[in-house]
Amino acid sequence: MTDAKTNTEDYLRMYRQMVRIRSFEDQANQLYLSAKMPGLTHMYSGEEAVAVGICEALKVTDKITSTHRGHGHCVAKGADFKQMFCELLGKEEGYCRGKGGSMHIADQSNGNLGANAIVGGSMGIATGSALSAKRLGRDDVTVCFFGDGATAQGLLYEVMNMAALWSLPVIYACENNGYSEYTRTDEIAAGSIVGRAEAFGIEAFKVDGQDVLAVNDLAQTLVARCRKGEGPFFIELETYRYHGHHVGDINREYYRPKDEEKEWHTNRDPITNFAKWLTAEGIVDQAELDTIQTEIKTDAASAVAYALDAKYPDVSEVDMHVFAETP
């Protein structure tokens, strides 16, 4: 499956996964705005090609660590809509039995070690996961997703140093969406992003994060090299978040012009552009893509309905899972 994506099935799978993320986020956005969802949430819409391009290069046993803007990574790594929506709504059937919520979905069965609400908080975990794989003789690769804002955290430099010293099979995937919360990235990051990794002797790449094929090609290569012991690697993925920092951040002209948003929506949307390429190449026709869109939207809507009706965990679960059982 992780061989070069040269057949229709693989293309359609990538298309489908990107649409799934977009549909999931549209539903989550509505749930939040209509006050049906507790807490707060951060939309991945616009960045779909990053998560899908990378995760399509991974096996189920490969690991990822995710961020507060993590629904996309979770879907791309193979998670199920129902369990995700249940988790967003704090229901018992959620991936974490409602104890994690939007910012902490972990899906062990698909190798998702969890989203992390501390910016940059999972860089150590991803690197440790790679250390485990190497030490225990597994060929797992770990991808550490983080944003441009997290490059300001010191932990990144500590763990890249050790990953480089110990040649660990980890890929640091920096999703540069241009904004660190409510601040332009060039105001918080001096110098070059890839230069940060290069300083440790880590091979670093910059790629168009809106081009799922470009992302996937690079990811395929780097994952394969990681399995051969050539890691770690660093990728800067140029991308864009359509929404604000979080769902409630709707008046953002003071830090981000509307013209810029319109430009990305119109000309750089990863799903639209991939659809254009698929039809132009004659791989599928538009009707087929429309059918996929409709199916997935229906799927997402029914998963939301299911989650809204699902039951909350029993109150007796509140002090369950503080400690793991030790046989």
Binding site: Y32, L33, S34, G39, V247, G248, I250
Partner: peptide, 8 residues
């Protein structure tokens, strides 16, 4: 058109 939840 709904009154949106925008803050925590």
């Amino acid at each position: 058109v709904i009154m949106p939840a925008l803050g925590m």
